[in-house]
């Protein structure tokens, strides 16, 4: 871990301004991913802005009847919130499927969205990785690819986004609220928040330098059955091979998003329309254009079968 200077931010706008002032500055909240990466010198900030003291830890009801979740709300608290459990069960379920109790107590809502990939080649600084070191190449392609992406990949990167929470947020049409260093605020629809790798896999979101997430808002509840099904090699404390987050209405309509298959939580709105027709039809739409490797081609039938189980559960 390289040396860095450290400050505690006093307000969101001040934090964003401080981030612009200092080259190589990073915000730190839960720290569960950033410190992990700093120890390996995958992340090498020169300045840390500790945002934990900011008053961004509330969950409030919005005037539209939705929820505004402060950026610093811990994963445990978000999953346990009565309103989330009642009206956004998918979000609660996705959070609880992720990480461990210890990590969820520390990890924040904003930090969860900003998690970096768990691709093992990204994590090994001896290996070329376009995400870690732009232009160095991708050691994963042609290597150990079983856990990696099957769709939305590029010749530069086949990493996945590791978050469970983000899959639920994607299905729930969340909006990411931010403040920039000049004090301006904006809302970024979750669909536009995470990027595909393309030629620039090191740029993972549409945030601009210094921009600080202050909240994530959810539209008013849509009802229906909320199911998050995470499939993995062990029963807990593991990243998804694939995950399926779905909201299914009584008439069989609904929406679905996937985890573990792409560089971002994967949703294809056109696939939602296929839900009444069943898993096969939905999976075909969701995964059209998939480019799996020999090692991870199993994810395609796995998505379809898991979707089938989810739709059956929704009916039952």
């Amino acid at each position: 871990m390289r040396s860095f200077t450290y400050e505690r931010a006093s307000s969101p706008a001040e934090a964003a301004a401080a981030a612009m002032r200092t080259e190589g500055a990073r915000f730190i909240a839960g720290g569960t991913n950033l410190l992990d990466l700093m120890k390996l010198e995958i992340e090498t900030p020169t300045h840390l802005i500790d945002v934990n003291g900011l008053a961004l830890d509330k969950i409030e009801t919005t005037t539209e009847g939705g929820l505004r979740i402060g950026a610093l709300v811990r994963n445990t608290d978000l999953a346990a919130d009565e309103r989330v459990r009642r009206d956004y069960g998918l979000l609660s379920r996705a959070l609880l499927a992720g990480a461990s109790g210890q990590l969820r107590n520390k990890a924040t809502t904003a930090g969860n969205l900003l998690q970096r990939t768990r691709c093992p080649y990204f994590y090994d600084t001896n290996q070329p990785c376009n995400k870690r070191q732009p232009g160095s190449g991708c050691a994963a392609i042609g290597g150990f690819t079983r856990p990696l992406a099957v769709i939305g990949t590029s010749d530069a990167c086949i990493a996945t986004h590791p978050s469970d929470m983000a899959v639920a947020m994607r299905a729930l049409d969340a909006t990411v609220e931010t403040v920039r260093s000049d004090g301006t605020v904006r809302g970024i629809p979750i669909a536009e928040f995470h990027r595909l790798p393309g030629d620039t896999p090191h740029i993972e979101t549409t945030l601009v330098p210094g921009e600080l997430i202050t909240a994530v808002t959810l539209p008013k509840p849509v009802g229906g059955k909320h199911i998050y099904r995470k499939v993995r090699d062990r029963a807990s404390y593991a990243f998804a091979l694939v995950s399926v987050g779905a909201i299914v209405q009584r008439d069989g309509t609904g929406r679905v998003a996937l985890g573990g298959v792409a560089h971002r939580p994967w949703r294809v709105e056109a696939a939602d329309a296929e839900m009444p027709r069943g898993a096969k039809a939905v999976a075909e739409r969701l995964l059209a254009g998939a480019r799996p490797t020999d090692e991870n081609a199993f994810k395609l039938p796995l998505v379809e079968r898991t979707l089938g189980a989810v739709l059956a559960e929704a009916k039952g």
Partner: peptide, 25 residues
């Protein structure tokens, strides 16, 4: 241990990559 047969190493060389049973298993 996942072998990278080109680069000659065990790729999943930590406790997140090399999964061992947890309580729930």
């Amino acid at each position: 241990l996942a072998v990278d047969k080109r680069r000659g190493f065990f790729v999943n060389h930590d406790l997140a990559g090399y999964e061992v049973p947890v309580h729930a298993d």
